[in-house]
């Protein structure tokens, strides 16, 4: 493969380091495993506590309900995981959910066929994400500012599109393909599950995933390796837009109506799911498995607090605490 098979150096010089590296790496390996395990452990501990307090928790109906509640957040969080893994943030996801829903409803009301409607809606999502990416990479805006701006813009367009009124009158029969059930399993859950598998594949097995993590780890090093960083960051924000518009479709299908304010605040849930799942806000570290567990932890927590008849006000406190604790553990682990 290359002209480069012999170096005249003495391997003795390096052997002293290999020992050091081995022990260090073992500790690191153990810590990583503990980190992953810790997340799953937290999830089951939470589930166990709730199931003791409320016997209804472990019924099939309720568990399906938990998955259902997790599905939309998970779909958005998958895209968010990519964005955060590059070291960025996408605050516009909730607004894209709302605007995608309006686009979908408008098209269906104008009797555009369902497949074409879905195609156009998803494409619009990709475009909205791409706009974020271009603002960030070509104009050089910080991701927080760029997506804060588009968060407001997309929401505004969504409200303007129907003078702030919801778009009613979608055929529930037609939307069964999205919001119905396969046997006992709701289709949104299936969509979220398949999305997670695809996201896992993209993150672990494609150059998009490779570059995503590498850019988050050290953008300058990636650029100096000849990688068109701007293009790949734009792709990552487009993925986030795509996932948000998919969430918008699922949400609209479930409600058989589109609310222009739908999705408000979803960005915080998506960020929370990714971060609880171990995605590093400084970039470079992310797993899809972590994000899935993160979304499930949030859903179980909400469901549990509902079952225990705890006011929703307290739920905010609980979820906020989980985020703070999860990131604290992550930070402490990193510091060592």
């Amino acid at each position: 493969m290359s002209h480069f098979n012999k170096t005249a150096a003495d391997p003795e010089n390096l052997s002293q380091f290999s020992f050091l590296n081995k022990s260090k790496t073992f500790i690191n390996f153990a810590r990583q495993q503990l980190g992953k395990f810790g997340l799953v452990f937290t999830f089951f501990l939470l589930a166990a506590v709730i199931s003791v307090l409320s016997p209804y928790f472990l019924t099939v109906d309720n568990l399906i309900n938990v998955l259902m509640q997790a599905s939309i957040n998970l779909i958005i969080a998958l895209g968010m995981t990519f964005v955060i893994a590059t070291g960025g943030i996408d605050l516009s996801v909730g607004s894209i959910v709302g605007l995608a829903g309006m686009i979908m409803a408008k098209l269906l009301i104008s009797e555009v066929s369902l497949p074409l409607t879905l195609g156009i809606t998803l494409l619009c999502g990709v475009l909205m994400g791409a706009v974020n990416g271009i603002l960030i990479t070509r104009i050089g805006l910080p991701p927080f500012i760029a997506t804060l701006g588009t968060m407001s813009i997309y929401r505004g367009v969504s409200l303007i599109s129907n003078q702030g009124r919801p778009a009613y009158g979608l055929s529930s029969q037609m939307l069964k393909a999205i919001a119905g059930r396969i046997g006992p399993i709701p289709i949104p859950v299936v969509i979220a599950f398949i999305s997670a598998i695809i996201a896992f594949f993209v993150l672990m097995y494609t150059i998009i995933g490779e570059y995503t993590l590498a850019i988050g780890g050290n953008e300058e090093a990636v650029r100096l390796s000849g990688v068109p960083v701007a293009r790949y960051k734009t792709i990552v924000y487009s993925i986030s837009g795509l996932m948000s518009s998919l969430a918008g479709i699922v949400l609209t299908a479930r409600l058989t109506a589109a609310e222009p304010i739908a999705g408000t605040g979803y960005e915080l849930d998506a960020i929370a799911a990714a971060v609880i799942g171990g995605t590093s806000l400084s970039g470079g570290v992310a797993t899809i498995f972590g994000t899935v567990i993160g979304a499930l932890i949030m859903s179980v927590l909400r469901n549990g607090l509902n079952l225990l008849n705890i006011q929703s006000y307290y739920q905010l406190v609980a979820i906020g605490s989980v985020i703070v604790i999860a990131v604290t553990i992550d930070t402490l682990r990193r510091k060592k």
Binding site: L213, A214, G216, G217, N218, A221, V222, L224, G284, V285
Partner: peptide
């Protein structure tokens, strides 16, 4: 470390 490598990879 700053320009050549992605240390987290």
């Amino acid at each position: 470390k700053v320009q050549g490598l992605v240390l987290s990879s």
